[in-house]
């Protein structure tokens, strides 16, 4: 499968955009600009969701479909800066400091700092849980001048890398979903009114999708996200692997998809010759949960890109899976509704 080089450049830009939960403005601006040529209407809501409307083409059937991918990423928030300029922080979403030791984080102002494991100190209990801090090499006054203070957030500073078959970097969870939505928006010709929601604050509890679903009251919703690929060493029973095709959601901690809904997606995949895998994860929820339970209930289905090392700066996904997820999503949105 060949794809123009510039498409992967868009994914690279999307992953580079700063956008921890609640501070999605940079990501949102980038996405809004990329969506603009294909959007009939674009708006933001008070949670920070970006909602791009694409009205029905051809003989409109009056049905409304919500397509949702969260645009926020995990990160940290500054809680305290000591007299030497060492920065204490709290996680925003599922950020695990122990997996980022020695890595560089970037603040919205552009300043970077390295994540350090605190030395336990002489006579201290070495069994105590490790503590971490950020070191930007600046004094408190210089930090303030560089635009970093308590309440500011930082994310991994890693840039996306590519091989012939894979992409790797930070925030593939879920800029890969945003990328799929944008690529779908460019292609789709649907008789349904489509609402592309780039949701805010998913990583802290699927908050943006909840209010977006309430506001839109759709007839059907598709959730697109990154999910856990577990084709890693010493795992005898692999559930999801890179290159096996997009994952069709069965269940996660927040949702059980109605069997008929997931079968409808599977049938479209089979008829188009798109390979797919079933996604069953018993850790982590998604936007699918609150969207399904919005108002009196919304039928939901989910597509996901299997991704190794989720919630690290080394998230890795297969290009083929991403493009096939896009193709499957286009088919889902163009299909007649029952």
């Amino acid at each position: 499968m060949t794809t123009p080089e510039e498409n992967w450049r868009l994914l690279r830009e999307l992953t580079a955009a700063f956008g921890p939960s609640g501070r999605e403005d940079e990501a949102r601006r980038l996405i809004a600009a990329a969506a603009a040529p294909y959007a009939d209407e674009t708006r933001e809501d008070v949670l920070g969701d970006l909602i791009v409307t694409r009205r029905a083409r051809g003989a409109a059937d009056g049905r409304r479909i919500m397509v949702c991918a969260h645009m926020d990423e995990i990160g940290v928030m500054v809680t305290h800066i000591d007299e030497n300029g060492f920065i204490r922080f709290s996680p925003v979403g599922g950020f695990q400091a122990a997996r980022l030791e020695g890595q560089r984080l970037r603040f919205q102002s552009g300043l970077t700092a390295v994540l350090v494991r605190q030395h336990p100190g002489a006579g201290q209990d070495s069994a105590a849980p490790p503590r971490f801090y950020l070191d930007a090499g600046l004094s408190p006054a210089a930090l303030s001048e560089a635009g970093v203070g308590v309440g500011d957030m930082a994310v991994s500073a890693v840039e996306m890398t590519e091989t012939a078959g894979t992409v790797s970097g930070k925030a593939l969870d879920n800029r890969v979903g945003c990328f799929i939505l944008l690529e779908t928006l460019r292609r789709v010709q649907s008789r349904h009114d489509l609402y592309f929601v780039f949701s805010a604050q998913e990583e802290v509890g699927a908050r943006g999708a909840k209010t977006a679903a309430f506001a839109l009251a759709p007839d059907l919703a598709y959730i697109v996200d990154a999910t856990i690929a577990d084709d890693i060493p010493r795992n005898p029973v692999v559930r999801l692997r890179l290159g096996g095709g997009p994952a069709v959601k069965v269940m996660d901690r927040s949702v059980i998809i109605a069997p008929a809904r997931r079968e409808a997606v599977a049938a479209l995949a089979r008829s188009a010759g798109i390979p797919f895998q079933w996604e069953i994860i018993d850790q982590g929820g998604t936007d699918a949960g609150p969207v399904q339970l919005s108002r009196g209930g919304v039928p939901v289905a989910g597509l996901a890109v299997p991704t190794r090392y989720i919630h690290t700066p080394a998230e890795t996904a297969a290009k083929a899976d991403i493009l096939l997820a896009r193709d499957l999503l286009v088919r889902c949105l163009e299909a007649d509704m029952d």
């Binding site: 109605a258 399904q292 339970l293 009196g296 209930g297 919304v298 039928p299």
Partner: peptide
């Protein structure tokens, strides 16, 4: 007198 189902399975 009546029964119906919804999209969540109620």
């Amino acid at each position: 007198t009546e029964s119906r189902k919804d999209v969540v399975g109620n």
